[in-house]
Structure formats: C-alpha cells, structure tokens
Design a protein around this nucleic acid. Structure first.
Length: 269
DNA sequence: GCGCATGTTAACTT
DNA sequence: GAAGTTAACATGCG
C-alpha cells in the first residue's frame, strides 16, 4: 500500500531536498538496530538531490525505490509510515527522514525506530530487496502444493507463515487472518495439513492481502488498529468477542512470542 | 508510576 | 541446522 502512495506522490518528480531528522535511520543493511547506521548516510542521501524518483517496487515488507542511478531499500518495521505534507509545515512527531519534492515533503514517521532506509547502487537493488526471502505472497502467489513443499516443518502453521524466507509479506495480523479464512487452527503443525487445507490456505493468503490493500485504498482500514475506528479484522485483537462468522468467542494465546487469535468454532483443533 | 503489550527482524543460545 | 529466546525502541493502557 505504501508503494502505491509513494508512486502516486512522487514517481517522476525531482528530489529537491532531503531532511535527515534521525541519522540512525539510514543503515548499511536492513536492520532493526540503530547501531547499524551508515556513517555519513545522511550526506549520501543529500547527494541525491536533483535525481528523479522512479517507480517503487515491493517484495514482501521491503520496498526498493530508484533515484536515477541510486537505489533506496526501505523497511518500515512495525510502526513506520509515510505522510505527505506541505514543505512549509513543521515535521510531525517521530519523523525520521523527509524527501522534498518541490513544495511537498514525504516524511517517514516511525515511533519505535525499527524502520530503516538503506542506500544501495541501483544495479544491486532488486537482489537486495529479495535477498533471503521467499516468493511475494501477493505478486507471486503459491498454490497449495507449492505451499506444502515450502512448509515442511512440524512447527505451528501460523508461526511459519510469518517466516519471510518461506513466503514474503505476512506478519502477525495477516498470518492469523489467513488461517481464519482457511479455517485452520493456527497451532496445527504445518506438516499435518491436508492438501485441501493447503489449497484453502493458498486462497486465504491472497484474499486476505488483497482485501486489506483494497480496504486501505478506500480508507476503510487504517494502518494501525489503535488509530481509532472499527477493528476491520475477523479475529485479530478480538479476544473475548464473538466470531463474526459463527459467534463463538475468539480466543488468544501467545505463539512464538506473538499474540495469536483464532475462533475455536471455525478453526477447531 | 509500574508492568505489560504493540504491527519486525536478526543475532543469539540451545 | 532447526527452533526458541532476546534485544533493539517508544508509546499507551490499566
């Protein structure tokens, strides 16, 4: 979704300024640690002024964006997002970096500082964006049999759905929602799923992600549940409330360090 | 005010 | 190696 925003806001426009608010967000590799910052990284980006923004590409949760011969790898972490503001306005709270295009600025905001941007030569950008990742869940959808082959482990299916090396793009929310759509118990060992389960899961993943992108596009779903408004998900953060499909109370349990939600009625063990 | 939870990742340890 | 744990961080909530 943020790829679409950046494309519509800046593709083809000339970068006229760079505002580095937090030097540590410019890293030498994708990392959640500010200690991996790229020394002089702010200056590197400032050297891109005058370049023209290309079309951003996405693979999983990573973005690649070209500025003439320069590539920028972007990961928004947990709380990162981009906003567009008039260049004359002050930057919002928790802003890390700003890309100026004439009278507008794109600010990258990230309260928890797990987001980062990585300058990379354009020729290496594509492989850097994909490195260590499986197929993109939405752009290169796997069929049931492909999923089964990629998930040969006894670990819980929801946990391994979040492993980017197997399939790229699913986090805690969408992994849980995809399991719900496929009517699969999240704790089920992956290698115990039937071919019918895999087929429903393959469909559930694509439907979940596509629905979410569409909802955000029309403003129905905010990026964060906490940002007020109705919780747009079926089970995520709905513990103790009735399942929208069958009315059974949704339950939550910690799985591999992440809170996991499911409906015991629709997703029986 | 304290403890805990929060959408991610990779570097650790076992 | 696979699998589990922890650390990196800031904020809001009860």
């Amino acid at each position: 979704m943020c790829r679409r925003q950046l494309a519509s806001w800046a593709e083809g426009r000339t970068l006229t300024g760079v505002r580095v608010i937090d030097e540590a967000v410019v890293r030498h590799k994708v990392s959640t640690r500010p200690s991996d910052k790229l020394e002089g990284g702010g200056g590197v980006l400032e050297g891109w002024v005058g370049c023209t923004a290309g079309a951003p590409i996405r693979h999983g949760k990573r973005l690649g964006w070209s500025f003439d011969d320069n590539g920028l790898l972007i990961h928004l972490g947990m709380t990162g997002r981009w906003v567009r503001r008039p260049a004359s306005d002050p930057h919002p709270k928790s802003t890390r970096i700003g890309l100026v295009f004439g009278d507008e600025v794109l600010w990258m905001i990230d309260t928890r500082r797990f987001a980062c941007v990585v300058p990379i030569p354009l020729g290496e950008l594509d492989q850097a964006v994909r490195r260590g990742h499986g197929p993109d869940a939405l752009l290169e959808p796997m069929g049931g049999s492909q999923l089964a082959a990629a998930f040969q482990t006894k670990r819980p299916i929801k946990v391994v759905l979040m492993e980017q090396k197997r399939i790229a793009g699913l986090g805690n929310i969408h992994a849980a929602e995809a399991c719900f759509r496929a009517r699969i118990w999240p704790k089920r060992p992956a290698n115990a799923l039937s071919s019918g389960d895999w087929d429903r899961l393959a469909q559930g993943i694509v439907t979940q992600l596509q629905t979410s992108v569409d909802d955000i596009d029309v403003g129905k779903e905010s990026v964060y549940v906490s940002e007020g408004g109705e919780n747009p998900f079926s089970v995520y953060r709905r513990a103790g409330r009735p399942c929208p499909d069958c009315g059974v109370v949704v339950v939550a349990e910690e799985l591999a360090g992440r809170t996991t939600y499911w409906c015991p009625g629709c997703q029986p063990s």
